[in-house]
Design a protein around this nucleic acid. Structure first.
Lengths: 244, 244
DNA sequence: CGGCTGGTTGAGGCATCTCAAACGCAGTGG
DNA sequence: CCACTGCGTTTGAGATGCCTCAACCAGCCG
């Protein structure tokens, strides 16, 4: 983790894949871990449950769902390999949301007390954990920014772009992605209705920014990730080209 | 800062005020601190700046502002006494947003390396910091929930309620609050336009949920905090009473 | 086959945005 | 003292983006 030259912003992308491997290796050798295989729909933890452990995703894909007292429910986060689950439970000693598997996968469960003890012996582990919490805060704020400043179509494009970037950072293929969420779930996550998601995807397809696989409407391919970013930018200043 | 009589709602409220005092005392005795007085508009840190220190608010009121590459700008957090500033900078070693004072106040600045060293010696300090990060994640998710599930009027009511609760948790008066934000800033934070904020406040006043001070439209008083919660609930199920 | 779940698309309605006018207040300078 | 200006706020009227409601389609499974 020693930088010879400090790069300005030359894509932190390849870095993250290594960092994930590093963190997983570190955990494996320094902390008692319980491995658990999960299937789509399994809950890793539930709101209200006592927080005794944190979890790190070894493989698979997960969502966190916030439930308010009056029954409103919202997907507040999507999580991939290397992400931690359960930070929300530290403050109050119990979880504030549900963490649910969206696919088969494996989570590593680590008792929080054991983790802290290991962190005391291994500063790099503490640094990993802090970095993960920090990144989570940053991602939440990016979500808020998108929710508040982007129109529906652009929000969907941004969502797909973030997904592709997440894949890229983990060394997976970005041109082809299979959404494991229904339109309703995507809409819930993005603060819009399922019909709006559907229309947005259709428009993105019409604009050739994405394409649907012949297999079905859940799989789509992204010819060029940057085109998604360009679509977002375009919908922010539609008249800028003609005016100036 | 010891309360002789516990305030109306004996929930987790009194707890937090004590915890803030505890954390500040702990910092004061275990870590080298730089105190800094700030005035409205001063920046505590800026996006892109190297993260060398974290900050804890000793007094005053601050906002964090996220700025996207394409120029979109959004208030993503409001912070009061006892809150930490700068967590977003840990992951990448540089801050991802601006932290700006909204009022005169004092921040305590702590070098991150010194903080980690102190945490190694004082587990309670580490616990405090983790709890603060965890709470921040929780609050961000609450914000997302509000943004995605509440109509504009309810969002404003919820915003005021959260403000009042924050005051209450810190042992300050909740019936009278002076917004130190313009309508435009509130709207930016809540994902709506300033006119919508203004209309929402007018409606809340008409419904007697809030009242404006005779001094001006920036000061308002809240007869009953629970009425704000009730207003939120009402706008979620307007027809429920008549239907069932 | 028939039911079920998820997706697409259209038509109309509503909440919020946009544009515009007017007001109060504070600061400034004649 | 009174314009005069600038900023923040309020309120109205019209435009629009998204929601609601509804119909229909495709794949899947008993």
């Amino acid at each position: 983790m020693h930088n010879t030259t400090t790069p300005p912003i030359p894509t932190a992308a390849p870095c993250l894949s290594e960092r994930i491997g590093h963190t997983l290796a570190l955990l494996e050798e320094r902390v008692p871990i319980t491995r658990r295989l999960v299937r789509c729909g399994d809950t890793v933890y539930q709101a209200g449950e006592r927080m005794e452990s944190l979890h790190v995703i070894h493989s698979g894909f997960f969502k966190t769902v916030n439930l308010s007292a009056d029954g409103r429910e919202q997907v507040v986060g999507l999580h991939f390999k290397g992400d931690w689950l359960g930070f929300d439970g530290i403050a109050e000693g119990q979880f504030a949301c549900d963490a649910i598997a969206m696919d088969t996968g494996e989570v590593w469960t680590i008792r929080y007390d054991a983790l802290l003890a290991a962190c005391a012996r291994t500063p790099a582990l503490l640094a990993s954990m802090h970095a993960a919490m920090s990144r989570e805060i940053g991602r939440d704020r990016e979500s808020m920014l998108a929710l508040c400043t982007l129109p529906a179509d652009a929000r969907v494009a941004d969502f797909l772009r973030n997904w592709a970037v997440s894949m890229e950072q983990r060394g997976l293929r970005t041109d082809q992605i299979t959404l494991r969420m229904t339109r309703a779930e995507i809409g819930n996550y993005l603060g819009m209705k399922l019909e709006t998601v559907s229309r947005a995807l259709s428009r993105l397809e019409r604009d050739k920014v994405i394409g649907f696989s012949e297999k079905g409407r859940r799989d789509l391919h992204i010819p060029d990730v940057r085109a998604l970013g360009a679509f977002v930018a375009r919908s922010l200043a539609p008249a800028a080209l003609t005016l100036q």
